[in-house]
Amino acid sequence: MLASLLDAPPRPAFRGPTFIRLLARLTDDTLPQGGPAPAERLSQWIDWTRAVVLSKVLDAKASEAEQDAQVVDRDDAAVCAKARATLLASITEAPELVIPQPQAAVASNDDDADAAPAVAIDFAPFRQRYLALQRSMLITTGRLRGDLRDRLAQRSADMARLAEVDAVMEGALSPREHALLGAVPALLETHFERLRAAAGVSATDPSAAWLDGFRRDMQGVLIAELDVRFQPVEGLLAALRTH
């Protein structure tokens, strides 16, 4: 098996965002180097009803910002950075992703006899953790995005229009985003099973090298997904900084 892997031609490097490149590395499928232009891709994702709503927002006359609205003085960048740091810590400190320290072997035969039988390591806990972290990212970034839109709407008519456009785009693209990101755990499960099979060893050792490698891979994918989910937040922050 090792010889066949060494003789196989190298896969072409995939160029793209970190999140996509990581997924491409974990799958056996060769991803295409090219693809539709962003505008064409968006036309495939946005149905005609959403397109009509977006068109109305873009064509509408900019409304004046609420004069009586009280803008709370706060450091929006710091608020977002703190939220991101909390999510990052929940990824790096997830119990399933912490690489365990090897324990000394038990010398006593009596202890060996009383020891609980080894349990095969399954992907289920990793799936549950990934889904839980995805929910946390979704809730946090959604709340931040809504707060930042409210802040923009209080600045000026142009910023209020930008906030409306972002709200429409979030509603239009969220179903597609959920579907695509929802497929990631299945890709990781395939990678998990492939690593375990390639190791050719017992699947009951929580400190096995293949499992440590999987933990690092899953953590890297989660961090890259966090970056993807924060891109709209960073865009709204950039708009606030310019006004």
Results as ranks from 00 to 15, higher is better:
Met1Leu: 14
Leu2Met: 12
Asp7Trp: 06
Pro17Tyr: 07
Pro17Leu: 07
Leu22Asp: 04
Leu23Asp: 08
Arg25Cys: 09
Arg25Tyr: 04
Leu26Met: 07
Asp28Cys: 05
Pro38Trp: 09
Arg41Cys: 09
Leu42Pro: 05
Ser43Val: 05
Arg50Tyr: 07
Leu54Met: 04
Leu58Thr: 09
Glu66His: 14
Gln67Ile: 08
Val72Trp: 03
Val72Leu: 02
Asp73Pro: 03
Asp75Cys: 02
Val79Pro: 03
Val79Cys: 00
Ala83Lys: 00
Thr86Tyr: 04
Leu88His: 10
Ala89Trp: 11
Glu93Cys: 09
Glu93Thr: 09
Glu93Asp: 13
Pro95Cys: 01
Val98Met: 10
Val98Ile: 15
Gln101His: 10
Gln101Tyr: 12
Gln101Pro: 03
Val106Ala: 15
Ser108Gly: 08
Ser108Gln: 06
Ser108Glu: 00
Asp110Ile: 14
Asp110Asn: 11
Asp112Leu: 15
Ala115Leu: 13
Ala115Ile: 04
Pro117Val: 03
Ala120Met: 12
Ile121Trp: 03
Ile121Ser: 04
Phe123Met: 09
Phe126Tyr: 06
Leu131Val: 15
Leu131Phe: 09
Ala132Cys: 07
Thr141Cys: 01
Thr141Asn: 00
Thr141His: 01
Arg151Lys: 04
Arg151Ile: 03
Arg155Leu: 11
Ser156Cys: 03
Ala157Trp: 07
Ala157Pro: 02
Ala160Cys: 04
Val165Trp: 02
Met169Cys: 05
Glu170Tyr: 06
Gly171His: 11
Ala172Ile: 06
Ala172His: 01
Pro175Leu: 09
Glu177Leu: 06
His178Cys: 06
Leu180Met: 11
Ala183Glu: 11
Val184Gln: 00
Val184Glu: 00
Pro185Thr: 09
Leu188Tyr: 01
Glu189Ala: 08
Arg194Met: 07
Leu195Gln: 05
Ala197Thr: 11
Ala198Glu: 10
Ala199Asn: 04
Val201Phe: 06
Ser202Trp: 12
Ser202Gln: 13
Ser202Phe: 12
Ser202Asn: 13
Ala203Met: 00
Arg216Cys: 06
Arg216Ala: 08
Arg216Phe: 03
Leu226Lys: 04
Val228Gly: 02
Val228Phe: 07
Arg229Gly: 09
Arg229Phe: 07
Arg229Thr: 02
Gln231Lys: 14
Pro232Asp: 07
Leu240Tyr: 00
Arg241Gly: 02
